[in-house]
């Protein structure tokens, strides 16, 4: 296992109001690696990402970023510290132009930093550069995913949280998005990928965690997880013998 000192969650408990969705989660992501978090619908994967991003307050446990406790920090603080979430469903600002979407990704940064980041994103995604004046809502699904990732990159993140990036995309586009994700982990940056599509998750991530009902039940290298019975049952869905159903 790589040095997982970039992002470390320990005993993380969080939920919505009185409903607890995470019951003490331990997880780590190191610089340079793509780590996947897999599990059924309703297992708590999105809640986990939102808690790391600060959209949901945790009630117990810790979130550490490069060793620093950021548990009580606000969303803007975390964004500036390098945590960036690409939300499920891409959530681009549909009525705004591609260019404005990207500029918002750099919200709070200096003009010079934004200009530099913008040049990088346009270089990485020439298709966004071609469509910079188009409103984001008119882009195709794959392009919107590119924009959502580009927008996240505008804050120069070191922890990139991706929530279901392949959802609703054509198979050919999924391959394209896989390549993009693989390229996101760098010398300083790590990726935590939530993915329903296990094939995608195991192709892109070097290791992963399985989450069931708000707990991590198993973890390990992708190759091992791929053969794990629990992972299989989680992904093949309802097993008629046990009567377990998708939520």
């Amino acid at each position: 296992m790589t040095d997982a000192g970039l992002l470390r969650l320990s005993g993380l408990v969080a939920g919505y109001g009185r409903i607890e969705a995470l019951h003490g989660v331990d997880l780590a992501v190191g610089a340079g690696e793509v780590v996947c978090l897999i599990g059924r619908n309703g297992a708590g994967k999105t809640t986990l990402l939102k808690t790391v991003a600060g959209l949901i307050r945790s009630t117990a446990g810790q979130v550490r970023l490069r060793g620093q406790d950021i548990t009580g920090r606000s969303v803007p603080w975390r964004t500036r510290a390098g945590v960036s979430l690409v939300p499920e469903g891409r959530r681009v600002f549909a009525p705004l132009s591609v260019h404005d979407n990207l500029l918002l990704g750099g919200y709070g940064r200096s003009r010079r930093a934004i200009t530099a980041a913008l040049a990088e994103v346009y270089a990485r995604f020439p298709r966004l550069a071609e469509r910079r004046r188009q409103t984001a809502g008119t882009l195709s699904g794959g392009e919107q995913q590119m924009l959502a990732i580009g927008r996240a990159l505008m804050s120069a993140p070191t922890v990139i949280l991706l929530d279901e990036p392949s959802l609703g995309l054509a198979p050919l586009v999924v391959t394209e998005v896989e390549d993009i994700i693989a390229g996101l982990a760098g010398a300083e940056a790590g990726v935590l990928l939530v993915e329903q599509n296990a094939a995608v998750a195991f192709r892109v991530a070097s290791r992963g965690y399985l989450m069931e009902r708000g707990r991590i039940t198993t973890s390990g290298p992708s190759a091992t997880l791929r053969g794990d019975a629990r992972v299989r049952s989680a992904y093949l869905g309802a097993d008629p013998a046990t009567g377990e159903l998708h939520r």
């Binding site: 991003a53 959209l55 969303v75 803007p76 964004t79 500036r80 960036s84 979430l85 939300p87 959530r91 600002f93 549909a94 009525p95 705004l96 404005d100 500029l103 918002l104 990704g105 919200y107 709070g108 927008r151 804050s155």
Partner: peptide, 24 residues
């Protein structure tokens, strides 16, 4: 249309939660 504060307002109007994610 030209300032980050104005863009932030349009972002909040379009999608509140995602606007918060941008640090707005």
């Amino acid at each position: 249309t030209r300032s980050q504060s104005g863009r932030a307002m349009r972002a909040l109007a379009a999608d509140r939660e995602t606007a918060r994610l941008m640090g707005i």
